[in-house]
Write a protein that binds this DNA or RNA. Structure first.
Length: 470
DNA sequence: ATGTCC
């Protein structure tokens, strides 16, 4: 696959063979070598009807279902633009929530093991059913699907300030629970407030480094401060919605005269019955994901209060697997676009009207989960951000689960992490081994490249003190 | 990611 370097941290594939836009990859030269393996998917996405700008890829790009993970593509709604579930991913609204504790690492130290034991006890994790909160019935599940974090807070699980610090105020308005199928509901009923497995986690962290004091202060973060980061999604419910709607789209796509180079890029016009159906169901899954993170945060708050006498304030909650209808300026005109971000994080700039007043001067907090043994990052959106104000979402996998588990045993890894001062509360040794830090790219390099490409700015680096893993 | 295959 041929590409050229346009400038530092930016590579380009010229349009050819059915591509309606160029491909653009933000990466260092070194990360670009990894990215090459997924360029075919970047090129495939560029053939989607109505695509504007480019088919973009973030520095943590890797192979995914249809779209690459780390892919961003926007389509023009009024110009036959399509919506593709492959551009969102199976884990709809997977995302990150960061809470800042009212104590620093030294103060927490004597209580850390008790905090970790408490979290290990109350945080449901791993595949299958189990959640901290059970909706009373079908009716209440619908309330979660339509109300997200807002509904959870209305029921006493959090406060109004939490909602200001959630993307979309905690709930996407366009959710349509009627488009959530029976099996998705069954699966969703028993998993509200659960982590799941794979790279999902709840970590107790410490602010190890601050790159921008004033932005960090606006986010409520300072050096040595204790934080809690929660990374999870919409569990079986989102997965089932994706499965159901891909099938529905696949069977009608030809009727719209749409051809795609990969069946996994199934799509329909945003402005079509099937497009609206998927967007309504996707929004419902998005709300489920936010309620999920809200309820896990409440569980963490109870543990911190009881075992350490500490409080937790929400810094922000943002998804990195979602499609959204947003207005952007394209070729000098305001256009309504369907922005797919799959393994890419929205990064609104300072002054954006959708940011809460107290953050409007500094930009949107962007939360980047790293790996267990290394670090996570807090970034902020920038004024001249590219790719429809998007940036990276994490380290990005480098080894398969199988390969990872071959490099180290779970017990050995746990011993190594504990020796490094990181308390670990895993679901099983095997699941831990699959998530060994060596299985991931260097998150610092990914963040460096994202900043170098002009997508965001670094605010703080967080290191783990304790990890609860699915 | 996912009741890791309906």
């Amino acid at each position: 696959m041929e590409y050229v370097q346009e400038r530092p941290y930016r590579f380009r594939v010229e349009p050819r063979d059915g591509m309606r836009a160029p491909g653009v990859v933000f990466a260092s030269r070194e990360l670009m070598r990894d990215a090459e393996k997924s360029l075919e998917q970047v090129v495939n996405v560029a053939t989607l009807p109505g695509i504007v700008g480019a088919s973009y890829a973030m520095p943590d790009i890797h192979w995914g279902y249809g779209f690459p993970i780390g892919g961003v593509a926007a389509t023009d709604v009024a110009d036959g633009g399509v919506i593709s579930p492959g551009g969102v991913g199976f884990d709809i609204s997977c995302g990150v929530r960061l809470l800042a504790a009212d104590c620093d690492r030294q103060t927490l130290e004597p209580a850390l093991q008790a905090v970790m034991d408490g979290l290990g006890h109350v945080i449901p994790r791993g595949a299958g059913p189990g959640g901290v909160w059970k909706p009373a019935g079908r009716q209440e599940l619908e309330s979660v699907l339509e109300g997200g974090s807002r509904y959870a807070v209305e029921q006493g699980h959090g406060n109004e300030r939490d909602l200001r610090r959630c993307e979309d105020g905690g709930a996407v308005a366009e959710a349509d629970a009627g488009q959530v199928g029976e099996r998705a509901r069954e699966r969703g009923l028993v998993q509200v407030g659960s982590l799941g497995s794979g790279n999902h986690f709840l970590e107790v962290q410490q602010v190890a480094e601050v790159y921008d004091e004033s932005v960090a202060a606006a986010f409520g973060l300072a050096r040595d401060q204790v934080c809690v980061m929660i990374h999870c999604g919409s569990r079986g419910l989102g997965h089932q919605i994706c499965t159901d709607h891909v099938r529905a789209m696949d069977s009608v796509m030809a009727r719209y005269g749409i051809q795609v180079p990969d069946r996994q890029l199934a799509c329909v016009p945003v402005d079509s019955p099937q497009g609206r159906d998927y967007l309504g169901a996707m929004a419902a899954a998005a709300n489920y994901g936010r309620a999920n993170r809200q309820l896990l945060a409440q569980a963490a708050r109870r543990v911190f209060r009881r075992t350490a006498g500490a409080g937790l304030d929400l810094v922000y909650d943002v998804s990195h697997n979602l499609a959204k209808i947003e207005t952007h300026r394209v070729d000098g005109a305001e256009r309504r676009l369907c922005v797919h971000r799959k393994g890419a994080t929205r990064a609104f700039p300072p002054g954006h009207p959708e940011l809460p007043e107290e953050l409007r001067g500094v930009g949107q907090p962007v939360l980047i989960p790293g790996t267990m043994g290394t670090a996570s990052y807090v970034l902020t959106g920038v004024t001249d951000g590219d790719a429809f104000h998007s940036t990276c979402h994490g380290a990005g996998r480098a080894l398969s689960r199988h390969q990872a588990a071959r490099t180290i045993g779970g017990k050995q890894l746990r011993a190594r992490l504990e020796a490094d001062g990181i308390a670990v509360r895993p679901m099983s040794p095997r699941s831990l081994a699959e998530e060994t830090p060596e299985a991931y790219k260097d998150v610092a390099a990914v963040v460096e490249a994202s900043e170098g490409a002009g997508l965001c700015r670094k605010v703080a680096r967080l290191v783990p003190l304790g990890v609860v893993k699915g």
